[in-house]
Each structure stands twice: as C-alpha cells, then as structure tokens.
C-alpha cells in the first residue's frame, strides 16, 4: 500500500514538469498553432488580400518554386546575409569589449552602466528618423563635424555607404542588449576562478581565454541565437532609415516580405517567404541549439 503511494508520488514527481511547462506551452500554443497551420495553408495558395477579383487558388508548391526565379529575393538574401554577419559580429565584439571594460573598472551599479543601456529605450521607428537627421549630407551634424575636422562630407546613405551605415545604426540600437547580457554573464563568474588564475601566474589574455570566455559560453550562445534571429527579421531601422534603398541596396528579407505582404498584398507568397525566413534561421541557429543542449544533458 505504502509502496503504491510512493509509486504514484514518484510518477507525479516525474510528470511535474508539466505543471511548470504547461502554462507557457498553452499560451504560446494557443497563439501560434492556428497561425502556423493557417500560414502553411496560405503559403500553398495564391491569395491577394485586397484584390478579391483575383480568385484565391490552391497552387501547391508554386510559391516555393518561384523563389528560384525571384531575382529580388536573391538580392535581398545577399543583403540580409551581409547585414546579419555585420550586425551580429559587431554586437558580439563591441558588446563583449564594452562589458569587459565596464566590468574591470566599475562598481556593480554606476551611472555609466545605466547610460550604456539608454539607446535601447528609444522607439525603433524614431531611431531611424534621428539617424537620418544626423546623417543628412547637407544639414546633418555628422558631416558638419567631419568638415570642421577638415574631412570631405560623405553621402552616408548613398549607394557606396548605405549598407555599412545601416549595419552601424542597427548595432547602435541593439548593443545594450548584448552589453547587458555579457555584463550579467561576467558578474556571474566567481571571483575565485580569477584568483586561482592569478596564483598560477596567468596573463590577462590567458585568463580571458581559459576562464572568461568558457564561462561566458551560455551568454554567447544566447546573444548569437537571438541576435541572428533578430537580424534576419530586422525591419524598423532599415525601413525608416533608407526604405531599403538606395535602389534595393539595403532591402533585407523582412522588408521584402513586407513589400510583398503589405504593399502588393500577395499574402500567399509573403507566407511562403516567412517560412523561408524560419527555415534559414533554423539552418543557421540549429548548430547553436544542439550545442547548447549537449552541454546540459
């Protein structure tokens, strides 16, 4: 009898993850299962949202095979690739550098730590607008300053520089995210590790590579995973800063999806593109996930 009770208790104990996980899964499931199924269904149709005179028709995988003849998609994939590489690399590198410096010289709470987080708090739509003012070739303060320093003014949003500018502005807006996470990660590394390293006579570089970096790997993975996914979805800053231009030089994937979905209102094709974004994300991020998982199983 007591045996059965403890068996039941054990079974309950084993299943109690459901109690923890359940509510979240229900919330996310109720909101995403229907849209996902509906989205997949839509991606197999030709459906124009505002032109009911175009009949809604089932087209099978045509939307997906159309990818191969869509030169604009290829261009925006290339733009997205460069954009994602640039922003993620900068955010990881600068974020880590600044977090390290802050960690070395500052107390746990200080005004500086507070200030570096501020750019994140500005509405993204306005981020693009304020940078457009700063970067304006005639009136912008940046050109005014570099002219004052004796350098020729630049067309920051012109064909040569636009993509680099967009990468820098996006990095500006989201660095607080990586700084915050890296700072958290750094302050969770126990002091004893460093003390031990110091006793061993390890230099700063060796300490960094043998203690800091390995202990930051979780943070690094989280930053990489979420910044990659954000880069593949990046919309607001680019939209207000360049509108995807000049020409289509900065039209990243999300802008292209938006163009097809809410300008042409070709919702079937836009859905197929969304699925493509998801697939690409998984291909890029997949290795990080399984790596993360291996670590804690």
């Amino acid at each position: 009898m007591a045996d059965t009770i403890s068996q039941i208790r054990a079974a309950f104990h084993r299943k109690s993850y459901l109690f923890f996980l359940g509510p979240s899964l229900i919330i996310m499931g109720s909101l995403t299962l229907y849209p996902m199924v509906y989205g997949i269904k839509l991606s197999l149709t030709r459906y124009n949202l505002v032109r009911p005179w175009i009949p809604k028709t089932f087209v099978g995988l045509k939307n997906f095979t159309d990818f191969f003849s869509d030169e604009y998609l290829v261009k925006s994939l290339w733009v997205t690739f460069k954009f994602a590489m640039g922003t993620v690399a900068l955010q990881v590198f600068i974020g880590l550098l600044v977090a390290l410096v802050l960690h070395q010289i500052l107390k746990k709470t200080s005004l500086l730590r507070f200030m570096v987080l501020l750019p994140m708090l500005i509405v993204p739509v306005v981020t693009g607008i304020i940078w457009r003012l700063i970067l304006n070739d005639t009136y912008g303060v940046l050109n005014w300053i570099i002219q004052w320093l004796g350098i020729a003014p630049q067309l920051w949003l012109g064909p040569d520089l636009a993509l680099i500018t967009v990468i820098i502005v996006e990095t500006w807006a989201w660095l607080p995210f990586s700084i915050l996470l890296f700072s958290l990660g750094l302050s969770s590394i126990p002091e004893q590790y460093y003390e031990a390293a110091a006793i061993d006579g390890a230099g700063p570089w060796r300490t960094f590579f043998t203690i800091t970096l390995p202990n930051l790997r979780w943070t690094l993975f989280i930053v990489l995973v979420f910044k990659f996914s954000d880069a593949l979805k990046a919309f607001d800053t680019i939209y207000t800063l360049t509108g995807g231009g000049p020409g289509i030089a900065t039209r990243a994937l999300a802008l292209y999806v938006q163009n097809r979905g809410f300008t042409d209102f070709e919702i079937g094709y836009a859905m197929a593109l969304s699925i493509l974004v998801l697939t690409i994300s998984f291909i890029i991020i997949g290795p990080f996930i399984s790596r993360l998982d291996k670590q804690y199983e």
Partner: peptide
C-alpha cells in the same frame, strides 16, 4: 523538441503572424 519549438516562435517574422492572428 519543446526548446526548439519555443525558439521557432521567436524566429518567425511577425509579418507572417499578423494576418492569421
């Protein structure tokens, strides 16, 4: 699988969700 599925919600561009939602 649960972890991957949870992450996939974050990966999908919101524009893909808007109309069905």
């Amino acid at each position: 699988l649960a972890l991957q599925w949870i992450l996939s919600i974050r990966l999908l561009p919101p524009i893909g969700f808007v109309v069905p939602l």
